[in-house]
Nucleic acid binder design. Structure first.
Lengths: 347, 347
DNA sequence: TTGAAAGCGCTACCAT
DNA sequence: ATGGTAGCGCTTTCAA
C-alpha cells in the first residue's frame, strides 16, 4: 500500500512506453507536448517519483552532494556558520531533487578519509570544500578522486574548480575607518587560525588598512574558538600599552572577548571597543550589541549549491563573487575614554 | 582508472561467481571459509566496495539515515547540540557503511514535507526525530510514512518507536540543592519553548524541586533563543522582588542572560547567580564560567544511530536511558549578596 | 558449497 | 514522436 508504483505503472496509465515516460520526466526532446502532459499528469496522480537509486545506476549519479565539516571538539559547538549555510543550500537542493550528505569530523586526516569513502561508495556527485587552508592539499586529494567540487574562499593557486568568495577588504576598510573616526589610534586584531585562508586574508586587509591610515596595529593569533579569543584578549589587556579597540576574526571570539573585558571591570564600549566579523545574529543579543561585518551564510549556501550543481551537470561553472561584506554598526564600538594607558577600573 | 571495478571483477579475481561474492560480503551462510577468505582478499586488493545504489535496488534499502533539524532563523546560529550530535552519530554510521542525510528547515510544515520527500524518494531507511513537541504529530506523520524512526526525548504517549532519553530530574535536583545550600531562597527558571517536551519536563522538575525544598520559584517562558533569554532576564530583573538566582533552559540563553545582568551593572555571581543546562563547552569561556548540567550530545548521537540501525536491521530495538545529567559547578553561582530586594548598583 | 540467471527501477539506444 | 530492449551492479532464488 506504500510506494510500489514504478515507471511502468505510469507508462501504463498514460498509455505509453516507459522509455517515453523517462524522456518526459527529464524533459528531453522527442516527446510531443500532448504526450508529455498526459504522462506528467499520470505521474502526478499516482504520486510517483523516480527512484534515485535506479536512476543513478544508469546515469552514474548519486543525486546527492557532500559536505564534510571539520571542527575540533571545542569549536564544534559554537560555530554560527554551518546551520545557515546548510539551510541556504537546502533550498536549492530540494528544488532540484538532490540531497545533502553531511559528515562532521575532528581533523584533516579523518576529513580526507571521509571524502574517499563518500567518493568510492559513489554516495555523492560532488563536494563543498570549506574552511580553506593555506596551500590546501585537500584540493589535490579531491581532484585526485575525480569528483567535482566547489571551494568556498579564494585559494592561492588556481584550484581547477569553481571558487565562491566574498571580498572582505571593503568591509574591513569600513570597520577600521569607523574606529579611526571614533578616535582610536591603536587597534588590535585577534585572528582566527591563520592556517586558514580567510583568517590570513582578513589579517592582511587589517594590517594594510591600519598602515594606510597611520594607525598602530597589534595582532594576536587565535583559532576562531571562544577559548582562544578569550586568552588573546587577556594578553592584550595585560600588555602595558593596551589597544582601545579590538577586532576579532569572528563573532564567537568577540563575545568571549567581551566577557574577559567585563571580568576585568572594563565598561564596554567606553573602556574598550569591540567588533566581530562573520556577523551572526547572536551579536544582537549580547551586551553591548556587537558591531560586526555581515556574512550571510545562507547566501554562501545557496550560491555554492547552485554552482556545484551547474558544474556537475554542465561540466563547468563560473566562479562567483558574493557581494562585499559590509559593516554592521552596533553598540560595542564608541569613542575611547581619554585615559588609555592604564587599566581603568572606574565605571 | 577510477572505480570501474564491480562485483564481477572480484568474482573473476577470486575465481568464483558473483553470487558467492555477495554471500561472502554480507557474511551469510553457504560459503566455505576458504572461499570467503579468498573473496574478501580479492575485494580488498582491488579496493572494491559494493555500490549502495545497486545494493539498494535489490534490498530496498538506502543505507542512509535522515536527520531533519528545524530551527527558526535566529536560533539556528547558536545551537550547540547538533554538531556534536552528528559527530557522535557519524562514528557509528561510517563504521557500518551508512551515511547521514541532513536537512535544515525553518518550521514544522516544511519539516513534515522533508520527511515526506526523503521517504517517497527512498533516500533514507529511517529518521532521527529530535526536539520532541508536546503531543507531537510528527510521530503520527512518520509512522504514517512507514519509516523506522527513533525519538530523542520521552513522548507522552507510547510512540511506537524506540525512545532515547536522559533523566534530568537528578541533575536539576542537584542544581537546585546547590543553589539552596548557597543560601538562595527565590530562584527563577527561564524555560525553553514549553511546547517542547524537554523544556516542559525540566520546568516540572524545577517546580517540584523548589516546592519540596520550600523555595520560592518564579518562571519566565522563553524559546531557547538568546534573544528571548535576554528578554526574560530583563523582566526578571525589573520585577520588584527579583530572584537571586536564575536557571536557564539551555546555555545560550544563560549566556545572553549574563549579558543583560552585566548591562544593568550587576556583578556576577555576587548580585545574581546564573546557571545553564544542556552544558556546552562555551560555558567554560564566558565570564563568569557557567554552572550548568552536562548533556553529552555526541553520546546522544552514537546511541541514537546505533538504536536506529538496530531497528532497521532487526525490526525492533529497545529504548535507551542515557546516564543521568549531572551538575557542572563553575563560577557563575555563589552565595547571594545580603541585600536582594533592591537593584544593587554597587560593584 | 557453488554457479547461473532472474530481477530491482530506471536510462539510453536502436528501431520504427 | 514513439516502442522495445539492453544494460547499470547488486541480491536472491533455483539448480546442480
Amino acid at each position: 500500500m506504500d510506494q510500489k508504483i514504478t515507471i511502468d505503472d505510469v507508462a501504463k496509465a498514460a498509455g505509453v512506453s516507459k522509455g517515453l515516460v523517462s524522456l518526459a520526466l527529464n524533459d528531453r526532446a522527442g516527446v510531443s507536448a500532448e504526450a508529455k502532459g498526459r504522462i506528467l499528469r499520470a505521474a502526478d496522480e499516482l504520486g510517483w517519483r523516480p527512484d534515485p537509486r535506479a536512476r543513478g545506476l544508469s546515469t552514474r549519479r548519486a543525486y546527492a552532494l557532500g559536505l564534510i565539516v571539520r571542527r575540533s571538539p571545542h569549536v564544534i559547538e559554537v560555530d554560527p556558520f554551518f546551520a545557515s549555510f546548510i539551510a541556504g543550500a537546502e533550498a536549492v537542493l530540494a528544488e532540484r531533487g538532490q540531497v545533502l550528505v553531511l559528515s562532521v569530523v575532528p581533523d584533516v586526516r579523518t576529513e580526507v578519509d571521509a571524502y574517499r569513502r563518500l567518493s568510492s561508495e559513489r554516495r555523492v556527485d560532488g563536494f563543498f570544500l570549506t574552511d580553506l587552508l593555506d596551500d590546501d592539499h585537500r584540493i589535490a586529494a579531491l581532484t585526485g578522486l575525480g569528483k567535482p567540487a566547489v571551494v568556498l574562499g579564494r585559494p592561492d593557486e588556481a584550484a581547477g574548480m569553481p571558487v565562491i568568495s566574498r571580498d572582505y577588504s571593503a568591509g574591513i576598510s569600513q570597520l577600521v575607518a569607523h574606529l579611526a573616526e571614533l578616535g582610536h589610534r591603536r587597534i588590535a586584531h585577534v585572528t582566527g587560525n591563520t592556517a586558514m585562508q580567510h583568517a590570513r586574508i582578513r589579517l592582511q586587509h587589517f594590517l594594510a588598512e591600519c598602515e594606510s591610515r597611520g594607525l598602530e596595529a597589534v595582532v594576536e593569533e587565535a583559532d576562531f574558538s571562544p577559548e582562544q579569543g578569550a586568552a588573546a584578549t587577556r594578553r592584550l589587556l595585560e600588555a602595558p600599552d593596551r589597544p582601545t579597540a579590538v577586532i576579532y576574526g569572528n563573532d564567537p571570539m568577540a563575545i568571549a572577548g567581551m566577557a574577559v573585558a567585563h571580568e576585568r571591570g572594563l565598561s564596554l564600549p567606553g573602556d574598550l571597543s569591540i567588533a566581530g566579523m562573520d556577523g551572526s545574529d547572536m551579536g544582537e543579543w549580547v551586551y553591548p550589541t556587537l558591531t560586526s561585518l555581515d556574512n550571510a551564510p545562507s547566501q554562501w549556501g545557496s550560491t555554492a549549491a547552485d554552482t556545484l550543481l551547474r558544474l556537475i551537470e554542465d561540466g563547468a561553472a563560473p566562479d562567483v563573487e558574493l557581494p562585499d561584506a559590509e559593516l554592521i554598526r552596533r553598540a560595542s564600538t564608541a569613542a575611547p575614554a581619554r585615559t588609555t594607558s592604564h587599566h581603568s577600573k572606574e565605571r
